[in-house]
């Protein structure tokens, strides 16, 4: 860990001044900038125009007049309800993931029982399970548990599929806590729970933040579980709400773009205020 951060810090500093500009890579990066930038610009620009203006101006022109009409239409068109559902699911997933993963990682690193080594290998294998392949049995299980068509039905499997990576990341950081600290707390008369609460949690704040972000992103972006485990319109989360907006805004492209943009807005704010945790969380997301 130290080695990694040392290199990345010293890299920029020790650059020799003789380096030539890399034109080919520069041109290449400029092309990618266009590929990423134009759609994002278009999405923002469409969403701020009235539909008639948008049709007159065409897809790439700057908006001739800026309006919040689409915003109002999306928010009053059910978005607030979807947002609330997504927030509930996300908060529940983060809380449950941390409440379950931290003690598990603690036991995996500190317990001497064979069970902890076994559990570690199981969770390692768990990284490989594709969630898509389990939707039919999950549908059956959730139905039998009388949970179909509830937010709980979305939360439970989402937490379960986020656990392997969460536990492995937390266990990795717990291994850096030195034995002396555990021993010192034991001498002070602390039991395992107090050690967890007063030593393990404060010492692994960084990984807890990263895992929390990862769990939040996973819940926020979840599409498949809500799709198959709920049907009540009042229980739609944002991603499913988007799907419905498409049908409703069949020809209202600006309205659709506003809806897409609004679902990403909270993540964008997180990107601005907590870029580091977000990137760490995203790294986890992508590896699923």
């Amino acid at each position: 860990m130290t080695v990694v951060s040392d290199v990345s810090v010293s890299g920029p500093v020790s650059t020799p001044p003789k380096e030539r500009p890399n034109r080919i890579a520069g041109v290449f990066a400029a092309i990618w900038l266009v590929i990423v930038g134009v759609p994002i610009y278009t999405m923002v620009s469409w969403s701020l125009q009235e539909r008639d203006d948008f049709l007159d101006n065409g897809p790439v022109a700057l908006p001739s007049a800026i309006t919040l009409e689409n915003f109002t239409e999306v928010v009053t068109g059910g978005f607030a309800r979807y947002l609330l559902n997504t927030v509930i699911v996300t908060v529940a997933c983060v809380v449950l993931t941390l409440a379950v993963a931290i003690p598990a990682a603690y036991a995996i690193v500190r317990s001497t029982s064979w069970l902890s080594g076994f559990a570690f290998r199981i969770f390692l294998l768990g990284l490989a399970i594709p969630a898509q392949a389990t939707i039919i049995p999950l549908y059956l299980i959730i139905n039998r548990m009388q949970l179909y068509d509830s937010l709980t039905a979305i939360i439970l499997p989402t937490v379960a599929f986020g656990l392997p990576l969460s536990i492995l990341v937390l266990a990795g950081s717990l291994r850096d806590v030195s034995n002396e600290l555990y021993d010192a707390m034991t001498i002070d008369g602390a039991g395992p729970f107090r050690i967890l609460w007063q030593l393990v949690v404060p010492m692994s704040r960084g990984s807890i933040a990263a895992v929390g972000t990862y769990a939040a992103l996973g819940a926020w972006n979840q599409f498949l579980f809500p799709l198959i485990l709920t049907q009540n319109p009042d229980l739609r989360v944002l991603t499913l709400g988007l799907q419905r907006f498409r049908q409703e805004f069949q020809i209202n492209l600006p309205g659709m773009m506003m809806a897409v943009m609004l679902t990403a807005l909270p993540v964008f704010v997180l990107y601005l205020v907590a870029r580091r945790w977000l990137i760490a969380g995203l790294a986890g997301m992508g590896s699923r």
Partner: peptide
Amino acid sequence: TSRPSSWYLLPAALFFGVFAAFP
């Protein structure tokens, strides 16, 4: 030294077992 018992694994194992491994 105070060490956690295997019970600390139980909630995670239940979640993972019921909603990921069993399916």
